[in-house]
């Protein structure tokens, strides 16, 4: 269980925010993996609660979702998973709206948020919940003191961006490219463009973490040098879990690989802050 306070606090220095699907491939191993990421330097961790129809995910995370669900993951087991974790960084629940909506009895959404607060989660990312539909969850988060992170896409502009900035807390999840999640070898040129656009809007106060496609320390450095306050890495880590599972490697070995990868990404983020800012007009 986490005892950290507030998500924005995780971004005092360039932050590394990893994602794993909770319970992938099973609860025991997954606990070990998340703790390895914390040891490797994670500043906050996004934990996926798997939904059967993950429309924003590419093949890597889709497979993780399948493994976790086949391992018996449910919302209640997810909360128990969070309670069982021994880490001291803030934890964010990433899931789809229907699971939040269906949990518990009584008014929808509130029981899920209440339970999340109880187990020590700090906030949510909900990929299928745009600002238009988020008022109910925002209100519940306010009631229980949790953050609600929104994703900003390369296509998000003007009034839409303003509506998101008005509702967001914790950090802005800046989507580096169009499409679904998945590791790529290049960092999209649209990242810098998106960060510039965000800097122009009244979004200066909120940390901006860039995700979608980042898989190496060098990419993390580039993204931070381009102005990001942190990097979010999911598929590149899930790949390590998947490979270990496919090869039947002992969880301890996989955990060591994850820790090493986390270290690389965190060092990359820190190194990016030392690079000179981009010249004007590039």
């Amino acid at each position: 269980m986490s005892d950290a306070a507030g998500l924005a606090a995780a971004f005092e220095e360039p932050a590394f925010v990893p994602y794993l699907a909770a319970g992938d491939p099973d609860v025991e191993a997954s606990l070990e993996y998340v703790e390895a990421l914390a040891r490797g330097g994670a500043d906050a961790i996004e934990l996926g609660l798997p939904f059967s129809e993950p429309i924003a995910e590419g093949p890597t995370i889709q497979q993780a979702v399948v493994r976790s669900l086949e391992g018996g993951m449910t919302p209640e087991r997810f909360f128990e998973f969070v309670e069982a974790l021994d880490v001291d960084v803030p934890l964010v629940c990433m899931t789809y709206y229907n699971l939040i909506y269906q949990y518990g009895d009584g008014e929808p959404v509130v029981p899920f948020v209440e339970r999340a607060a109880e187990v020590g989660l700090e906030g949510f990312v909900v990929p299928d919940l745009p600002a238009e539909e988020a008022d109910r969850l925002r209100a519940a988060c306010d009631e229980f003191g949790l953050d609600l992170v929104f994703i900003v896409a390369p296509t998000t502009r003007g009034d839409r961006l303003a509506a998101i900035v008005e509702r967001v807390s914790g950090y802005l999840y800046v989507q580096a490219r169009l499409g679904v999640t998945g590791a790529r070898s290049d960092v999209s040129g649209r990242t810098a463009e998106s960060l510039d656009r965000l800097a122009e809007q009244a979004a200066a106060d909120i940390p901006k973490a860039v995700g979608f496609g980042i898989s190496s320390g060098e990419q993390a450095a580039e993204v931070v040098a381009a102005g990001a306050d942190g990097v979010i890495v999911g598929s590149a880590l899930v790949d390590i879990v998947a490979q270990g599972h496919a090869d039947d490697d002992p969880p301890g070995v996989v955990a060591d690989r994850l820790e090493a990868k986390a270290r690389e990404l965190k060092q990359g983020a820190l190194a990016g802050a030392q690079r000179p800012p981009r010249p004007e007009g590039t």
């Binding site: 924003a56 600002a131 238009e132 896409a153 296509t155 499409g179």
Partner: peptide, 12 residues
């Protein structure tokens, strides 16, 4: 009804 989709699709 409503519009429960990823932000990337909302402008479209």
């Amino acid at each position: 009804g409503g519009q429960y989709v990823p932000e990337a699709l909302m402008p479209a």
